[in-house]
Each structure stands twice: as structure tokens, then as C-alpha cells.
Design a protein around this nucleic acid. Sequence first.
RNA 1: GCGCUCGUAGCUCAGUCGGAUAGAGCACCGGAUUCCUAAUCCGGGGGUCGCAGGUUCGAAUCCUGCCGGGCGCGCCA
Length: 583
Amino acid sequence: MKSAIAKFLDDALSRLPDLADAAGGLAAESTIERTRDAAHGHFASNIAMRLAKPARRSPRDIAAAIAEQLPATDQVDKVEIAGPGFINFYLSPVAFHAEIQTILDKGEDYGRHVPKGAPRILLEFVSANPTGPLHVGHGRLASYGATVGNLLETVGYPVHREYYVNDAGRQMDILGVSVWLRWLETKGTVVPFPAAGYRGDYIRDIAAAINTEGLDAVDAESVLDGIPADAPDGDKEAHIGALIGRANELLGEDGFDRLRQQALDSIRDDIEEDLAEFGVTFDRWFSEQSLTKSHRINDALAVLEERGMLYKKDGATWFRASDFGDEKDRVVVRENGAKTYFASDIAYHFDKRERGFDRLIDILGADHHGYVTRVKAGLEAMGYRAEDLEVQLVQFVALYRGGKKVQMSTRSGEFDTLRQLRADVGNDAARFFYVSRSHDQHLDFDLDVAKSQSNDNPVYYIQYAHARIASVFRQLEEKNLSWDGPDHCANLALLEEPQEQALMTTLSRYPEVIDLAASNLAPQHLVHYLRDLANDFHTYYNAHVFIVGDDTLRDARLSLCAATRQVIANGLTILGVSAPDSM
RNA sequence: GCGCUCGUAGCUCAGUCGGAUAGAGCACCGGAUUCCUAAUCCGGGGGUCGCAGGUUCGAAUCCUGCCGGGCGCGCCA
């Protein structure tokens, strides 16, 4: 609808060379918006005001000139110049009827663009460390990322979803030691559990389930002999570091590696299952270990070396990040020869680009904002553009229980899992609630409210509208009446009630909402739209009866209902929320 | 200290590539059902858009400063 009006404007401009010149690269569509007040018509363009300065003419003068050149069409009833120079468009009923017909014709494809080949988008999200179950904060990353992926696909982009698994490095060793000690406990060897270990119950579950072939039980003395004291008397990092060394000695490197790998696989599988139940799936789980095995880190470092972006200092290898706007240079290879996490990070992004993805979108927790500049610096230093990478930082979820903020820590095992949350409030409510706020805003999640008032959640309000419509059609069948179906909406002209006009107007906004939400990576626009749509429907439902004796009026009203059901279903599908036929 | 980010109704938040009279839910008050699901609808009160300047025909939106909150600043991952 909006694009049709843009076309009319463009037509008019093409007949006004002076103004077309002044417009330059200004896209007519970007000047058009829905009016807030019906007294201003359905759409308004501020193009005349924007051209006033370059064209050196008064806005109202320009507006009048444009209005005069607008092509004749049955879509527009009236055009008015108003206020400082707005061009207001009053659309004809025909335009709205045509939109209802389009919704019914296109069905689940309504609002969807024809697929484009490019840019190919790599969407990375969640990427939580595989050291424990997902918590409620990860749920927000998952919901937001999945919905953004759906939106981008809906507007036609090829989207590849990826989860980066941090399965290398010290945290994996700590995980391995944690499982090892818990397993020893089952054999009667009780060692005080390290302060820096992962102490959640899931570690015990893993320990109980692992394949223990080749594992030998040892006594506590052999484990602790010569190990420096743990906190609070000693340093907890030194303590667990020594335990990692001991595990390698006692189990052998292969033995410890097998143990560690089993723990990793168990947790990774759990995360994958958790997310799949949440309706969040990935095209690839990208292993950090695989970067090393495939020598991608060395490849990336070689590129940087070749371009003169590395230097040695204090025995370490540094990357000239400060040349690209970072506050200081960054170490990529430590004095001890080990590569830093940052090295694998830039190698990973290098690999993403090398695999042919044009647009990289990372969805990260807000605590990662310090990494944005340096990763972009890495890409730029390797010859790509910093703009190839877009990072969306998702703010934290603060969990409240009994009016108090719940502290979360993965290592201590004191946190609320996504699983618990899903069980408490349901997948639909959780998916919906997570994306109902702008992702760059902090989210207060009050568990008590979510549980006790889950029926007040707006998701039910929207689903209820969908279910009500399904029920109307069931009633129709019971009464042995029929609807003339989606093929001939000849009677739509009978829809003259204000509630019907309002509903048709809101329905016609859907494609614009999808475009807005997709281009801003902002699903909350869709959430708010669906709420508005459901509100318009419920109002209509309360004001008028649909199943009336008059066949033509009934057909018209049912067409409107069917279109509403379709748009609600399409929107909820993008959000990953079900659209039930009964509640 | 430096950097990023946020500040809109009693509460939780939309609205921010500048647009006409700033919106919703919750809470509060008052109404609606012989009829398709009352998980619904209608009406009402409630605002110095943190503060102060600036740019503009026009600022919640852009710029600057200040105040207040959150987060980040390792040869950890």
C-alpha cells in the first residue's frame, strides 16, 4: 500500500524536473508515513517540506505542484495539502478491499518478500559457553536471535544461523576437573570441591552418566598431594590450575581429554535439545576447537602478519588494534605460545567472511561490548570492511523472585535455567515476552508475576483473537452456513462499520511493520502491532455479530475475519509463538 | 578515570533514520453479556518525555554540557 503511494509520488515528480532535481537521492517512500489522526487521511508525505530548502520554494507551493501531477487512480479518493505542507492521501475503500483480497490470496506468504540471493547473512547468536545449562539470560538471546532470523528471511534474505561453541581453553579443563572430582566422589574419594569449579548439580549427573572405561579411581591423597591451597586461604585459580595438571598426570592426557570431551558433548547436547524445544534451531554448531584443527587461527594470523599488522613485544605477539580505533593493541599469542581467545575470535570472523557471507550479524550479551571494536578492527586489518559486521548487544535479564533480584552465577550453580522458565510460563509466553521489549533495554523478569499472572500475558490476548476467529468458523459449520471463501470477496463494499474500517486499516499495515522490524532488527514492532490488531478484532467482535442472516454481509464479514486470522498467524509464526484454534 | 549504553504516566515499557494533539499494558474508578469463547469490550483520571542550552518551519527523537542508573575496561574465556 505504502509502496503504491510512493509510486504515485515518483510519477508526479518525474513530471516536475526542477523538483526531481532538488529531491536528488531522496526516496519518495521514505517521506511517507501512516497518519496518527484519521483527520489527516491514511498516509501523509512530508516531501514538500524536505524539498523546500533545496528547491527554494515554499513547502505548500511545492505540495500543490506535486498534488496536481499525481496520476489518476481508483486507489485514492482525495489528496489534500495540510499544515505546513503535508500531502495527505485519503485512500478509497477499493484500496482496502484489494488488500483483504491480497491477504487471502497470499495466505501464509502475505508480508513475505520474494527471496533475494544477497546479501547472504550469517546470524550468530546464543553462543553460550558449554559449561552448564542455559539460563534465563540466554533465553533472551535465543528468542531475539531466532525472531530476527525469521524476520530477515521473511523480507527475502538467505539467513544462516550459527552457534559458536567455546569448546577450547581453560574453562573446558575446569569443566573436566569438576566432573572428574564428582565422579571420584561416587567411588568414595571425597576431595573438597574447588571454589573455582563448576558446582551445579548437572555436573554430578554428568559424572554419573559418563563412560568410565579406562578411568581409575584414586584416593584423595594422590589428588591433593602438593596442590596449593584453595580459597579462602589460597588462590582459587592456582588451586584449580594445579588440579588440572594433576588430572592430566593421573588420567593421562588422552584420558583427561576423553573425560572433558564427554562432559562437553553432554552439555552441548543438552543445550541443543533445550533450544530445539524452545523452537530455536541452528544450521551449524561451530566449534572453536575446529578452528585450531583446521589451522584457521594460523591462517588468520598469517594474513595479519603479511599485512604488517602484528609485532612482538615482551615475548608476546600483538595486533595493532589501535590503528583501527581500538583503545590499545591486543595480544594474539601469549608469551607461553598459547593463542588468546581474541585470536580465535578474529579467526572465526575471518572464516565467516571467507565462507562467502556478506553480512555478519552477531547477537551478544551486553557484557561483550568491549569486543566489538577489536573484532571489527580485526576484520578491517584483514582487508574486509568493519561495516560487514553488525553487533546487536542484548541487555541483561534481571530475574526477580519474591520482589528480590536473584543473583546468578554459573560456577556456583545458583541460577535459574531456561528450562525452568519454560516449564513455568510456557514456551509461547517466554518467546513472546523476551522480544516484547527493545533488545537494548534491560529486562526485568519477575518470575512470580510471570507465573501467577500468566493469563494476563499479552500473548494470550493475541492468541485468543486467533482462537475466537477459528471458533466463529466452527459455529458457521454447526449452523450449516457457508462462507463464499477466499476466491471472491465481491461483497467487501458492505463493510462500512467504523470497527471494520479500523480493522482493515490495521491489517494493511502488516507488510510495513514487517519491513520496519526487519530493517531495524527490532521484533518489538511486530509484537506491538499484533497487540493492536488483536485489539481491533476484539472490539469488532464485541460490536457486531458476524454470522448474520444476510448472505452477502456474512460473507464480507467472514472474509475480514479470515484475513485477520491469517495475519495474526503469520505474525505469531515469525515470533515463534503458536496460533491455537481453541483455548 | 576512560569507553559504551539507558533515563517517557504510580509500575513495566512502546514511540527515537525530526513531523501535526506523546501511546499501550498493569494498577485505580465507572459501565457492557437473552447473540459467534468475558482469557473480551467501552468510558475516566493520570506526563516539566532526567535538567539546561543549541540546530530546525517543526525536537521525546539530532548536537553539546550536566545529573542519575547499568555494563565494560586481563598475555581470562
